[in-house]
């Protein structure tokens, strides 16, 4: 193990493409971790999954037109978020069904157009499953810019975001523009997905959005701490995944997500206050407490 780690460090020091990969995956770990905390607490895990799948046609069209795939992905991501809201507001279809309809439609469109382009599908497979080793330095700078926009927005709008997540009705009564906050957040979510395309890929982005945040949620009762822990788990998973992908030559996206899942499993069973085992031990007491509060 020690040998492999030294080898990994040496290789990263030696090859610029690995440095790009490392910096990008660290960045992706941070922005996914931070955004993910809001996604979990707003109950928008399915929405995260939807937006990430919905960027596929955007990527494919950009590829055909030869423009930056970030632009196309971003446009289809935001359009899907708007379409989901439009359908659920203007019919009796509920949110989750509307999400299911819109994102599969977009994803299907992406697949159909993609398969119509003979001989070029290999590159696009990178976006489906991610390949952090193929990240160029231009990609890195785009990710850096996106990360800056996302993090600065979250810092600036931290209080309205937190309040509308925790108590939407009160936030509306007090005059916070809750709808605009929601769409701004969807916009950030599309950006984050686009930034994560190359490291973990469209299909697994949702794991990076949810798993580190969920792990942190089991470990703390304070939201700022949850954000910090979530970012930390995001970064650790990214680095471990990159390590596995370099040293053992396995898929980067899958390794990153597996690392994140392992952290979650550890927290689920062994978290000091909310872990499975500690709850087993406390069960009689916990039962009584529940009776009093109900």
């Amino acid at each position: 193990m020690i040998n492999e780690i030294t080898m990994f460090i040496q290789q990263v020091a030696q090859y610029p493409y690995l440095q790009n990969a490392l910096y990008t995956s660290v960045l992706v770990g941070i922005i996914c971790g931070v955004t993910g905390c809001f996604i979990i607490l707003r109950g928008m895990a399915l929405m995260g999954d939807a937006i990430s799948h919905a960027v596929l046609p955007g990527v494919v069209f950009s590829y055909m037109l030869g423009t930056s795939m970030f632009i196309g992905a971003f446009i289809t991501g935001v359009a899907t978020a708007l379409a989901i809201g439009f359908v659920s507001r203007n019919s009796r279809i509920k949110d989750d069904a509307s999400i299911g309809i819109m994102f599969t439609a977009m994803f299907a469109l992406g697949i159909v157009v993609m398969t119509s382009l003979r001989g070029t599908s290999v590159d696009l497979m990178h976006y489906l499953f991610g390949n952090v080793l193929a990240v160029s330095s231009a990609n890195f700078y785009t990710t850096l810019a996106i990360g800056a926009v996302v993090l600065i927005s979250i810092v600036i709008f931290y209080r309205p975001l937190l309040l509308s997540t925790f108590d939407e009705t009160m936030a509306r009564a007090a005059g916070f523009p809750v709808k605009r906050i929601h769409y701004m957040f969807m916009f950030l979510l599309s950006l984050v997905t686009v930034a994560s395309l190359q490291t973990v890929g469209i299909i697994l982005v949702v794991a990076m959005l949810i798993t580190p945040g969920a792990t942190a949620y089991l470990l703390t009762d304070r939201f700022p701490v949850m954000i910090a822990l979530s970012a930390m788990f995001g970064v650790l998973s990214s680095v471990i995944g990159l390590f596995a992908s370099v040293v053992y030559d396995v898929a980067s996206g899958g390794s990153i997500v597996l690392a994140a899942s392992c952290f979650f499993a550890l927290a689920f069973f062994f978290a000091p206050k909310r872990g499975y085992f500690i709850r087993l031990l406390r069960r009689p007491g916990a039962g009584r407490e529940a009776e009093i509060t109900s």
């Binding site: 309040l163 925790f166 108590d167 009705t169 009160m170 007090a174 949620y217 304070r222 939201f223």
Partner: peptide
């Protein structure tokens, strides 16, 4: 708007939300 305080029904609140008592009260100042 800034002159209206609203207290929701208890069932509208996610009681697992990672906030402390003092954090909730501070939200009143937002």
């Amino acid at each position: 708007r800034s002159n209206i305080a609203y207290v929701p029904q208890r069932s509208d609140i996610d009681w697992d939300f990672p906030v402390l008592v003092k954090d909730v009260v501070t939200m009143g100042r937002f």
